[in-house]
Computed example of a mutant assay.
Amino acid sequence: MILRRRDSDGDRAARPRIGVTVSARSAWRIFPLIRLQVALAGGRALRWITEAEVDLAAVDGVVIGGGDDIAPMLYGGELRAGVTLDPARDRMEARVIEAARGQGLPVLGICRGAQMLNVVLGGTLHQDAFAVYDASRRYRTILPRRRVEVLPQTRLADLAGTQPMRVNALHSQAVDQLGQGLRLSARDEGGMPQALESLADPFAIGVQWHPEHLVYAHRQRRLFRALVSAAGARFQGDCQTEAVDRMPPVDASETFFARD
């Protein structure tokens, strides 16, 4: 891990720094989208492609981005033919999540990132989720085609409301057994898990879809606002979940399919 220039306390308090892990192959197109979402939420994103770039002391929160399937050996699964893996990224992100949790940094997991959060906390995955949830339609698009049901009495419901959301979908794996301290917060129409969240500090939420592509959608931007709010609270030594809970409630006019 390298040492980056430290920002002043005033800069960090005003614009929390968010470390973002991305794939070497897709960083050029994915990181600018996440950087935009973090900026709109009031933060500043730092890109991490390799473990040598990671500096947790320089950030106040973490985004674990999407990408290849997670190696099944990490959660007791079996390697299947034809699956693209990235062992170096697996190691990097597992270490980032472990260290972030240990240091009280909030985490937002996106697609693979949500799955990695679950695995690091002791959970497992369905390697072929659509073989298990045969009522769930398989999508591979950045367009908002999949309908997701937000579970009531969850932090995601507080952030985004309980009206169904239309989201995009690129994944083939999904959460099986939940990791320690996590609960489900959304499913699709076929019952497949689509989001999970931590029950207490440090704040953590993971979604199976790619909210970075849905920059026009109010409720998707609130995921990044929640992360930045939690990061700012952590920097100030305040309760992260309480800071997220103090966010203004979602406007009912923002929960219709055309704008979600």
Score class of each variant (00 low, 15 high):
M1P: 12
R4T: 08
R5A: 14
D11E: 15
R12Q: 08
P16N: 03
I18C: 04
I18V: 10
V20R: 11
S23M: 09
R25H: 03
A27M: 01
P32F: 11
Q37G: 12
G43K: 09
R47E: 07
A52V: 01
E53F: 05
D60Y: 01
V63F: 11
P72Y: 12
M73R: 08
M73E: 08
Y75K: 10
Y75E: 11
G76R: 12
G77P: 09
E78G: 04
R80T: 07
R80L: 11
R80K: 14
A81I: 03
G82I: 08
G82Y: 05
T84Q: 09
L85C: 05
P87Y: 05
A88D: 15
D90I: 03
M92W: 03
A94D: 03
V96Q: 12
I97A: 11
A100R: 12
G104K: 13
P106T: 15
V107R: 04
I110A: 09
C111Q: 15
A114M: 15
Q115T: 13
N118M: 15
V119H: 14
G122C: 13
G122P: 11
L125G: 12
Q127D: 15
R138W: 10
Y139C: 03
R147S: 03
P152F: 00
Q153C: 00
T154V: 01
R155H: 06
R155G: 06
A157D: 00
D158H: 01
P164N: 04
M165E: 04
Q173I: 04
G179R: 08
Q180A: 13
S185I: 02
S185N: 06
M192K: 08
A200L: 05
A204N: 03
Q208T: 03
P211C: 05
E212R: 09
V215G: 00
A217R: 09
Q220V: 00
L223H: 02
D238S: 06
M247N: 06
T255F: 03
D260I: 05
